[in-house]
Design a protein around this nucleic acid. Structure first.
Length: 679
DNA sequence: TTCTAGCCTG
DNA sequence: CAGGCTAGAA
């Protein structure tokens, strides 16, 4: 056989069907429809759904009493083509024959003498398939079609299907309701057990579906058993059922979700096509290709379904774990009480958050804004849920508490922080397990507490120690629990995104948080501004807005930032004048003898002021600018220009032109910036 | 009038 | 570092 021969045969056979056999017409039209459908599959998503849809079509056709072959046609065409495709791809010798399989089949039935035995054969198969479909579409509550219910309207039938669908999707809903927290389980085992049961129910359901599916599939296989031996990967029937069962076992129930509506459309399409002139598929090579695509798509579809199921189960389990371990941690911390009352505050907050049904939903911007409104108007620095962390060099001060603990007892701050820190809690649980203390929350880093108002009063050496701890945090290395106390500040949440990146479901909210606008300037912002001074002494307001994206700019904030840089300059120029005069007193006569290096006293003074922690690599350019400034002062003083009240202004003009670009890294929000420069 | 830089002071 | 004040620019 070859293509040129089979094509005319198929045409003639179609003509015969039109006059003699309505069922065969359906067969052909169905087949055409299926081929078209197979094309659509690749763009319309679930192939499994498509296959099942066709089965439903067959069932409906049976109920209508109009057609009697669709199921067979479905299986023979769809599966047979897929099967032969696989075979042809595996065996190049047979490749010329395989594409003809469907065509040859129809051409055989096209002969008048072959009609009768074929019809009998089909009727036998029809009865078989009818049983299969009935069992497949049936559910305990569904009416059994074909048993006195033929008068059922299509709408009723659809209702039946919908009911089936609802039942099939029920396990998922149950899962949601469980994870919703309304009926929160008391123990982990209980929750595990329920989850397991649901999973098993899903598996049973899918197994049933799979069995029906393979039965239908087997019908077509029998029809082509003389030439079909193997099937595409994932559908090897001979000895491959187990593997297929495993694959389909995890198929998500929602594959059936859109069955009825699409089946209805297909059904209408079939009726329309019935009236059309039947054209034989003269593009068998194309079909060949389509079958191959179908095979590939089936494989990917199955693996996708498995992944989806695993993900959903894991997700539910994780959320359950969160709500339980929050409580566990609270109790543990209460007993140990080695992390101070503030930690308990946070843990209680975490508890409340995890208990809230809608806590998993992203908060609106209004939510956060409304919280911040509670902050006094003249509060320019963000209040925070901050715990003073002891320094490593003062282990005896571990139990020190806040200087201003009243910050911790503002209820709205609770909500604010708890809502925002869910990610951290969850991450902590995933990373350290349920029995670790929240005092070691990885996202509550030493660097973060600098954003708290209390940090203003904190000696710089404390900050330095904390800064040194930062890098290990960033690289996810092990961290001593003794660092323990929890400095928490909303400003610092953006870095959570860096740590919880694998928690995709949290990413969206973090992306909101990272855009969260800070109402006031914090010590972190001051620190950042100081480091920016190494690059720019005269930043424009645009630069300030660009490099403080987490600050909600207003007149006050802008003035404050400007004032900061003014103060920075003041200190800078005072130092320059001081060291210039000192040089003159030291007998320096040549301005070229003046240089500023990292070992210079002048640099140390400046670095102490702008980079107290010394954890930032001051750019060389700043040394150059400092040197130029020093020389300018030296020259001016040497020339006795300082007698002029405004003698410095000339120097300012020179220095203001020496600003350089601030690195892009500074555009991060204050906390993120901290993390970047403390690595 | 508003904004900003700079100076002085605490 | 911030507040108050002044001068100058826009």
């Amino acid at each position: 056989m070859n293509l040129s021969i089979s094509d005319p045969n198929m045409h003639s056979s179609s003509a015969n069907y039109l006059e003699e056999d309505k069922g065969e017409i359906l067969h052909s039209s169905f087949r055409k429809n299926l081929y078209d459908g197979s094309l659509n599959m690749y763009s319309n998503g679930s192939i499994i759904s498509q296959l099942l849809r066709k089965t439903i079509q067959s069932k409906r056709a049976l109920e209508e009493g109009v057609f009697f072959l669709p199921a067979t046609a479905v299986s023979s065409c769809t599966m047979g083509d897929s099967a032969q495709e696989d075979r042809s791809s595996s065996s190049s010798k047979d490749s010329t024959l395989e594409p003809l399989s469907p065509g040859s089949h129809t051409s055989t039935t096209a002969s008048p003498e072959g009609d009768r035995p074929l019809n009998e054969h089909h009727q036998a198969k029809r009865a078989r398939v009818e049983n299969i479909i009935r069992g497949m579409a049936g559910s305990p509550n569904a009416k059994t079609p074909g048993e006195g219910d033929r008068s059922e309207t299509g709408g009723d039938i659809r209702e039946t299907y919908r009911e089936n669908k609802r039942k099939q999707r029920l396990p998922q809903h149950q899962n949601h309701s469980l994870s919703g927290g309304a009926s929160r389980p008391n123990s982990k085992d209980e929750e595990c057990h329920k989850l397991k049961e649901q999973l098993q129910a899903m598996q049973r359901h899918l197994r049933q579906l799979q069995e029906k599916f393979f039965q239908v599939y087997n019908v077509s296989e029998l029809e082509h058993e003389d030439r079909v031996e193997t099937y595409p990967a994932g559908f090897v029937l001979h000895g491959g059922e187990d593997r297929n069962a495993d694959l389909l076992e995890n198929l998500d129930c929602e594959l059936l979700a859109d069955l009825d509506s699409d089946a209805e459309k297909k059904f209408d399409a079939i009726k329309v096509r019935q009236k059309e002139t039947l054209q034989t598929e003269n593009s068998l090579p194309t079909l060949h290709k389509e079958s191959k695509n179908l095979s590939e798509a089936l494989k990917s579809e199955l693996s996708r379904a498995v992944n989806k199921s695993v993900d959903s189960v894991l997700k539910k389990f994780t959320s359950t774990l969160l709500s339980q371990t929050s409580q566990i941690n609270f109790e543990q911390t209460s007993v140990q009480d080695n992390t101070g009352p503030e930690n308990k505050t946070i843990i209680v907050a975490a508890q409340e958050y995890s208990h809230t049904d809608d806590s998993m939903k992203p908060r609106s911007a209004d939510y956060y804004e409304s919280v911040e409104v509670q902050i006094p108007e003249d509060q320019t620095e963000a209040l925070s849920l901050v715990v003073r962390k002891p320094t490593l060099s003062h282990p005896t001060s571990v139990n020190q508490v806040l200087k201003r603990p009243f910050h911790l007892h503002q209820p709205l701050q609770f909500n604010y922080n708890t809502a925002l820190h869910e990610n951290q809690i969850l991450e902590h649980l995933l990373k350290y397990g349920p029995h670790s203390s929240f005092g070691t929350l990885p996202c509550m880093t030493p660097a973060m507490d600098r954003s708290s108002p209390d940090s203003v009063d904190m000696p710089w050496d404390v900050i330095k120690v904390r800064s040194k701890v930062g890098p290990s945090h960033m690289t996810h290395q092990s961290r001593s629990p003794n660092l323990g106390q929890i400095p928490v500040d909303s400003l610092c949440l953006p870095h959570v995104k860096m740590e919880c990146g694998d928690l995709h479901n949290m990413a969206d909210r973090n992306s909101y948080i990272i855009r969260h606008i800070q109402e006031g300037l914090t010590p972190n912002h001051l620190k950042k501004a100081k480091l920016m001074f190494f690059y720019t002494r005269y930043p424009s307001s645009n630069v300030l807005k660009t490099f403080f994206p987490d600050v909600k700019f207003n007149r006050c904030i802008t003035s404050q930032l400007i004032k900061w840089f003014s103060n920075f300059r003041e200190f800078y120029y005072i130092q320059m004048e001081k060291f210039a005069r000192q040089a003159i007193l030291d007998g320096v006569t040549n301005v070229k003898d003046l240089s500023v290096t990292r070992d210079s006293e002048l640099f140390r003074a400046l670095n102490m002021h702008y980079n107290k922690a010394n954890d930032f690599q001051v750019p060389d350019r700043f040394l150059e600018v400092a040197e130029i400034t020093l020389q300018e002062f030296f020259n001016a003083i040497s020339l006795s220009k300082d007698s002029d009240p405004s003698w410095k202004k000339a120097i300012y003009k020179v220095i203001c032109k020496l600003d350089s670009e601030v690195p892009e890294e500074f555009k991060s929000s204050a906390c993120l910036f901290q993390k970047i420069f403390h690595r």
